[in-house]
Design a protein around this nucleic acid. Sequence first.
DNA 1: GCCGTTTTCGGCCCGACTGTTTTCAGTCG
Length: 599
Amino acid sequence: MPTNQEIARILSEIGEYLDMAGVAFKPRAYEKVAETISSLQEEVNDIYKRGGLKALTEIPGVGTSIADHIEELIKTGRLKYYEQLKKKTPVDLFTLTQVEGLGPKKIKRLYKELGIRNLGDLEKAAKAGKIGKLEGFGEKSAENILKGIEFVKKSGGRFILGYVMPDIRIIEERLRKLKGVDRLEICGSIRRRKETVADIDILAISDKPKPVMDFFVNIPEVVRVYAHGPTKSMVRLKIGGMPASAKASAGIDADLRVVPPESYGAALNYFTGSRDHNVALRKIAIQKGWKLSEYGLFSIAEKRGNSRGITRKETRIAGRTEEELYKKLGMDYIEPEMREMTGELEASKAHKLPKLIGYGDLKGDLQTQTNWTDGSATIEEMAVAAQKAGLEYIVITDHTKRLAMTHGLDARRLAQQIKEIDKLNERFRIHDTRFKILKGTECDILRDGSLDLPDEILRQLDVVGVSVHSLFNLSEEEQTKRIIKAMKNPHADILFHPTGRLIQKREPYDVDMEEIIRTAKETGTILEINAYPDRLDLKDEYIRKCVNAGVKMSIDSDAHSPAHFAVLEFGIAQARRGWATKTDIINTRPVEQMLKLLK
DNA sequence: GCCGTTTTCGGCCCGACTGTTTTCAGTCG
C-alpha cells in the first residue's frame, strides 16, 4: 500500500518528466497535486477504500486522469505511465533535482549527452571536465554543480526554527542597523513561524540598494554567493545553530531582496508566503481585473492604438502595507502564522478571523524542571529567571520515580519539595513581589494508565501534569486506553506533550488524538502545547481541533534551565498557527483564575 | 491535467538572476 509521500513523489516525478519533454501546463498540475497529497491529513489509501475513484477526485487537483493513476498505484503497487516515462530517461530525478541549478531540462541533456543517471555519475563527469565542454554549460556551471553536490551530500534540508532563530536574529539586527536600510524584515517560513525552516528570506527597503547588497554578500557568515544583483542576492550562511550537527555545519541559504517603500507591503506579503496563499491572493486580484506582484496591486487600463495594437497602463492601487493590500482585496488582515490555505481566506472575507493569542500574553509557565531531578538550576534560580522573562508564576514539575535516570521524585522527596516551595514563596512575599511558585509534578503514566505517585500526595499539589515516557511502541488501541485512563484520574490536570514526538528524531507514538481530545473535553483535562523547539507537541492541526471542540490548552516551556524560558515564544507561535485565542490558553490568566480552570 | 459565484473551453502567478548567449532559456522562489 503506497503512503501519501510515495504517491506524491511519483506524481511529482511525472511532472518533472513532462517538463523535460517540454509539455505545457501538465507539469504544474502534477507538481501541485503532489504537494497537496504530501500534506494531506488523511491517507489517500483510506480515502480510496472509503469512496473509490469518486472520493479521489474530491481531493483538490485530482481529476479523472490522476485519480486513475492513484487507483492503479493502490491496486497494483505500480504505475505504467510513470514507468514508461522513467524508461525513456532513467535517472535519479529525486536526488539530481536537489542540486542547486539543475532542473529537468538540464538533467535530460546531461543524460542524453553524457549518460549521467545519478549523483555519482554527475560528480565524475564534472571532475573529469566533461560538463564544462557541453554546449550551453561552461566552466562556471561545472563548478556550481560540484558545489551543489557537496551540499546535497551534507544537508538534510530543514532546520528546527527554535535552534536557528537566535543566530538569525543576530544577523537581522546587524543588517537592520546598516546605514541606508530603512526597514528590514525576515519573511518566509520564519515569519510564519513554521516548526522547521529551509532558508532565510530577508526583505529590506533602501534607496541605495547596492551598498546594502555588497554588505550582505560579504558578512563573515557567508560561505558562498549564488547570486549578487542590484535587488536580489542569494548566499549560503554558516551559522552555529544548536545543537551542533552535520546539518548546521553545511549552512543555511539566505536571500535578500530590496524593494522601494511603496512596494513594501506587497513584497512583505509575497515573500512571507505561503506560496499557495500568495497564488490564491493573485487569483483574487485577477478576478477583480487587477494584477498582484511583489511590487504592488495594480489596476490595468488597456488602450487600443491605431495600428500598433494594445498598450497597457498599470496604476498602483495598494502595496505600501499588508493591511492596505488585504483591505483592497476585500479582506481583513491575516496574521502570517495563518497563511497556510487552511480556510484563512474564507474567514477573512467573512470577517470571522479569530483574534490570536499575542506574543506577550503568557502570565505563567506550567512545566519546569529543577536540579531536584534533571534540570540544571535550583527552584529559586528558575523562579528568578521566570520573573525576568516577564512571568507572574511558574509550576515546578519535576519527574517522578519511574523515570529513574532523572532521579525522579517519590512521595517522600516530593513532600520535602512542597515544604521548600512554601519557604521560598514566603521569602518572595517578604520581598514584596507578587511572583508565585506553584507545586506540581510531571507524573509518569505507567503501562496500565495508573500514575506513578499515590493520590494522597497528588492531592497536595497545585498542578498535576501527567505524561508518557516509556513504552512508545504500544498499539494505538493500548496507548490510547492507557492515556485516557490517566486523564480520568481526578487529580490529573494537564496531559503534557500529548503525542511524544521529537521533530526530526522520533515519530509520535500511535495514539488516537480524536479520542484524546474528546476525553479532554469530557474530563476537563488540559492538553499541553509544549514550547520546546523540537517538541511543539501538540501540532497545529490538533490545536485547531481543540479550539473547535472547546478544549482548553496550556503553553509550557518544559524549561530545564533558566535560559529555556525563551522558548515560550515558539509555543505561542504554535498556538497561533492552530488559530488559538487568548481564552483557549489557560496560562494567559492570572494565577488564581488559572487554578480555577483545573480539576 | 485541472478547474469554474463572470468560463464545461480556454485559461493556468509573476519576476529576478545566471550563464552562455548576442536576445534568451533555465532555474528558483
